[in-house]
């Protein structure tokens, strides 16, 4: 029994050599990757299997296993922290991905499944993802395209960019810009402290959209026919609109509100000391460039 388990657990254990190994995966299995440092590149294929290609030095090793419905890929050091090891992984598009890294740049393309990625010093670049998609980097940028579902994209020190995506979207950074382009958000919460926030996409009836920043500009593309109650707040900033709006309420402290159409959606735009700009779809960046 123990021997069988050990055999299954160590489908591949490479030490100080190039590895190219493939383990079988059954539908529903999860891919769990732990990479201390290096580039991790994940792409998809039609086979129900996971292929791992890597080069390791004598100081590091890569462990690949499939136990308990989890395909695990782990970089390890012989003594102390693992060295940087680049991983090229190919997996089925349906396979859920959990990845954690430290000095790790991550690039994923083609997965149509839930994705969770956390890294500290590295960029995250994902094309794809369905269901819960959660991407986080402390020091790197986060870029997401072609995702659908409940999306979280967080950075601390860099920009966050989401495009051609749809669903409930939550994006934030401290010291970076947020760009949401061709995004179909049913609800949106986008917040930065020291950067611009821009959203170009539909505003759905009944949806809630919140774009906030402290020290940056807000840009919102508003499609014709939008039904929204819009609340605009700033302290030291300005408000401008490329189209006419009928302000229904103004308040002390540079706050105003107005209704578009039936007012069904709730839109909150807040910049402590930046410009809040309404534009038509596709015109947002032109407007920003004019400044």
């Amino acid at each position: 029994m123990l021997l069988t388990l050990t055999s299954a657990a160590l489908a591949a254990l490479a030490l100080g050599q190039d590895i190219d190994t493939t383990v079988q995966a059954a539908r529903g299995d999860r891919l769990d990757i732990s990479s201390y440092g290096g580039d991790v590149s994940i792409q998809t294929w039609s086979r129900n299997a996971v292929r791992v290609v890597a080069s390791t030095s004598s100081r590091g090793r890569v462990e690949v296993s499939n136990v308990g419905a989890v395909v695990t890929v782990r970089t390890e050091g012989r003594r102390g922290p693992p060295p940087h090891i680049d991983l090229e992984i190919t997996a089925p598009a349906w396979m859920r991905l959990d990845l954690s890294g430290v000095y790790t740049d991550v690039k994923v393309a083609g997965l149509q499944s839930p994705i969770s990625i956390e890294t500290v010093q590295g960029d995250v670049d994902v094309s794809g993802g369905q269901g819960n998609v959660s991407l986080q980097s402390v020091e790197g940028s986060v870029t997401l395209r072609n995702a659908k579902g409940r999306i979280e994209a967080h950075s601390v020190n860099q920009d966050v960019s989401v495009s051609d995506a749809s669903g409930e979207i939550n994006v934030e950074t401290v010291n970076g810009e947020i760009s949401l382009k061709h995004v179909d958000a049913t609800s949106l919460e986008a917040s930065s402290v020291n950067g611009d926030v821009r959203y170009d996409g539909p505003i759905h009836d009944g949806g809630r959209y919140s774009l906030t920043t402290h020290n940056g500009d807000i840009g919102l593309a508003v499609p014709a026919g939008t039904n929204a109650s819009v609340s605009v707040s700033t302290f030291n900033g300005e408000f401008k609109s490329d189209f006419e709006v009928s302000v229904t309420q103004t308040h002390k402290g540079r706050r105003l509100s107005f209704t578009l159409g039936s007012g069904s959606a709730q839109v909150t735009l807040e910049s402590f000391q930046g410009t809040i700009h309404l534009a038509r779809p596709g015109k947002l960046e032109e407007g920003e460039d004019e400044r």
Partner: peptide
Amino acid sequence: TTTVKVIERNLATIDSA
């Protein structure tokens, strides 16, 4: 140390805000 510096820099940004 780079991570610590980044965190402290961002904390300072937030403190300022």
